[in-house]
């Protein structure tokens, strides 16, 4: 029994070390005083300071946040609509096909999604003159398309768990379908929508591949900027930035988890 538990603990330790050592090394090196990112030169916070003086990084961060907020909001709007339609409009012909199709952007290789969106934007521009330049608008649209799939799935599963007779009861008491949606359905799926929004926000903030495809000159998101800087060698300020992003994302994950837990209890 004791030997067994020692084995289990070492497996656990190895597993978690595998997951978290790389992240930990980035955090440690973000406090490195040395100019060289991989040589330890004592503790310092200077790279965090440098970071906020670098307007290139701040611009990229602002673009990323702007895109993430807009894309998450749009994805929540469309994803909720899709989720409600799929779980509440009864058994229509081809419903399973639609359910499968809504999840396909989740499994599609990002390169393909990125490429197809780029082709779409280019041909749209040739035909209609819009989008005249690729950047904030195109990245937001691209992120919305894949993030709404996640929102739709979350909302749909929440609705599947929700007692349909709640909506019927409201209708029975004199609520017209649209009122019932506002009075009953939306308040009850609000936690799922919030969780979906947070997930969409995180996904958008993370994305490098799709953004690289559909962005143009002058429109670099934070992951794009980091990736291009790293190609010229890792600088310590990138470590500091990475640490901040990790902090931000973890906070988001914990928040989403807490909301999910409350949702389960309700």
């Amino acid at each position: 029994m004791k030997g067994n538990s020692r084995f289990v603990i070492s497996v656990l330790a190895f597993g978690y070390a595998f997951l978290y050592l790389p992240l930990l090394s980035v955090i440690v090196y973000s406090f490195n005083d040395s100019q060289l990112a991989t040589v330890w030169g004592g503790f310092s916070m200077r790279w965090y300071g440098e970071l906020f003086k670098n307007s290139q990084i701040i611009d990229a961060l602002m673009l990323s946040l702007k895109v993430a907020v807009s894309a998450a909001t749009m994805a929540t709007l469309f994803g909720t609509m899709a989720g409600v339609a799929l779980s509440r409009f009864g058994r229509f012909r081809g419903r399973n096909l639609f359910t499968g199709m809504i999840t396909s952007p989740m499994v599609m290789p990002e390169v393909i999604t990125g490429l197809s969106l780029l082709l779409l934007f280019v041909s749209l521009q040739q035909l209609t003159g819009w989008p005249s330049q690729r950047g904030y608008g195109t990245i937001t649209i691209a992120h919305t398309t894949f993030a709404m799939a996640y929102v739709a799935v979350i909302v749909q599963s929440r609705l599947a768990a929700m007692d349909e007779s709640l909506e019927e009861a409201a209708m029975d008491l004199g609520g017209r379908p649209f009122r019932v949606m506002i009075d009953i359905t939306l308040p009850l799926i609000a936690p799922a929508m919030l969780a979906g929004w947070l997930l969409a926000f995180t996904l958008s903030l993370d994305d490098l591949v799709i953004a690289s495809f559909v962005s143009g000159p002058g429109g670099s998101t934070l992951p794009m900027l980091i990736f291009s800087k790293v190609k010229l060698g890792v600088t310590p300020d990138i470590n500091a930035l990475a640490t901040l992003i990790m902090l931000f994302v973890s906070a988001g994950v914990v928040l989403a988890w807490a909301i999910g837990r409350r949702m389960q209890k309700a």
């Binding site: 007692d163 007779s165 709640l166 019927e168 009861a169 409201a170 209708m171 029975d172 008491l173 004199g174 609520g175 017209r176 009953i184 009850l188 309700a266």
Partner: peptide, 17 residues
């Protein structure tokens, strides 16, 4: 249902949580 002078008590009660 919202125009019928008929009301229903559901098996699950369907009390709005």
């Amino acid at each position: 249902p919202y125009e019928r002078p008929v009301n229903m008590m559901f098996q699950s009660y369907a009390v709005f949580p």
